[in-house]
Design a protein around this nucleic acid. Structure first.
Length: 407
DNA sequence: GGTGCCGGGTT
DNA sequence: AACCCGGCACC
């Protein structure tokens, strides 16, 4: 109880003490190592530099070398960046870190965490991180190609969605970009998918191979531009993922290639088949917003959901939506119910109620009608006569509508 | 007046 | 639910 009451102060003191201790004991190898790693990993955490000596500088070099070495040799190279960004954005839930960790413990263990943790949930073969990375990757390309506000948005939401704050929105991206970003150019021609490292190269490829033009780039009318897209590669893993998913990215970006639509629908499937129920949906969600944005000019999903649904409904029915893409399906379904009443949705509501009325009215009419127009055919009474009343159907016996000779 | 059956009551 | 019946609309 006491601890609980005093916790704020106590914790504060503890932290301070810890911090001092850390800074005070540069001799403790492990600690300083961790510190170094932390530096490597993140610059956001302030580390006391009070005693920066030559020794320490050397340490820097050594640890840096170590880190670099392990980075270059370890196959896990890919994971750390992702992990780190995630860690920074505060979404550690994937790691299953049950407890609230103090900054110190986090930072100290963090260095190793990212190395050991990946094996459990995010080993290279496991779709989780790569997938999410992939899933927003394609979107960013299109968004870069066309729509303005998009670029940052689509990429993060998976992360963003996890911690539910838009503050971290921008954080990871720059970091990722900082990390080895390589721009490649991918041919979008059907069944081609050639990837070249230079725009000129890809243009030439398209011009000669697909467009059948032998002339130089001089006579190019720029048509090639439509047939390739720019893809940015971060690491091997991403590159791999991209190469497999790349058909997707063109879908949004460039109109010409026929495969445009299929890949689009494909992707959600890919996401859906993934064992990860968590990251995949988020990716889908991204898709939705993205598409929504492109299709109409919505405001924000929650509030404008009705709007969106309304417009969507006016333009096509839910069943039709499936033909467009999955992304459309859920919004209408989700929101139509809650619709509050923008003009359009109101109209829709009216329509709906009308149809309902129409549906419900017929019965009345028929009943009224049936009441008036009594069945013409002979009933039990007439058929069997009063004498054989026991042969009547029960309904007739009870003076109810005959069940045996229905009209 | 005969017939079909709804609405309502009784068991 | 099963059974009964008053009463109405229709033929």
């Amino acid at each position: 109880m006491e601890g609980g009451c005093l916790s704020p102060e106590a914790v504060e003191e503890q932290r301070l003490a810890d911090g001092k201790r850390l800074s005070r004991d540069p001799d403790t190898r492990s600690v300083s190592l961790l510190e170094q790693k932390r530096k490597v990993v993140s610059s956001s955490i302030d580390v006391p530099h009070a005693r920066r000596s030559e020794e320490e500088v050397d340490m820097d070099k050594v640890t840096a070398a170590m880190v670099l070495t392990s980075l270059s040799t370890s196959p896990l190279v890919r994971s750390p960046p992702v992990k780190v960004s995630e860690a920074l954005s505060g979404s550690w839930k994937d790691n299953g870190s049950a407890g609230p960790f103090t900054p110190s413990s986090n930072s100290s263990s963090g260095g190793y965490w990212s190395w050991s943790a990946p094996s459990d949930q995010s080993n290279p073969s496991t779709p989780s991180p790569p997938l999410s990375a992939d899933s927003f990757k394609p979107f960013r390309v299109p968004s870069l190609g066309g729509v303005g506000p998009g670029p940052a948005g689509p990429e993060d939401p998976s992360l963003d969605e996890q911690d539910g704050s838009s503050l971290l929105f921008d954080e990871p991206i720059p970091r990722k970009r900082k990390n080895s970003m390589k721009v490649m150019f991918k041919c979008l021609w059907k069944n081609c998918g050639k990837v070249l490292s230079t725009a000129a190269g890809i243009q030439r490829h398209i011009r000669t191979i697909h467009l059948g033009r032998n002339c130089d780039s001089d006579c190019s009318d720029g048509e090639e531009d439509f047939y390739y897209t720019e893809i940015k590669l971060n690491t091997d893993s991403v590159a791999e993922g991209l190469s497999s998913l790349s058909p997707v990215s063109p879908s949004v970006l460039s109109p010409p290639p026929p495969p445009q639509q299929p890949p689009d629908t494909k992707e959600p499937h890919a996401g859906g088949t993934t064992p990860l129920s968590r990251s995949a949906p988020s990716a889908l969600y991204l898709i939705h917003t993205d598409h929504a944005y492109q299709a109409t000019a919505p405001v924000s999903i929650p509030s404008s959901g009705s709007n969106l649904a309304g417009s969507a409904c006016t333009s096509f029915t839910p069943t039709n939506s499936s033909s467009f893409s999955i992304s459309w399906q859920s919004p209408p379904v989700t929101f139509t119910g809650n619709t509050v009443s923008p003009s359009k949705s109101q109209g829709f509501g009216e329509q709906r109620s009308q149809t309902i009325a129409v549906l419900s009215s017929p019965p009345r009419a028929t009943t009224a009608l049936s009441r008036k127009v009594r069945g013409e055919g002979k009933k039990c009474r007439k058929v069997y006569g009063m004498e054989n009343r026991d042969m009547w159907c029960t309904a007739c016996r009870w003076k109810k509508a005959c069940q045996r000779f229905t009209d």
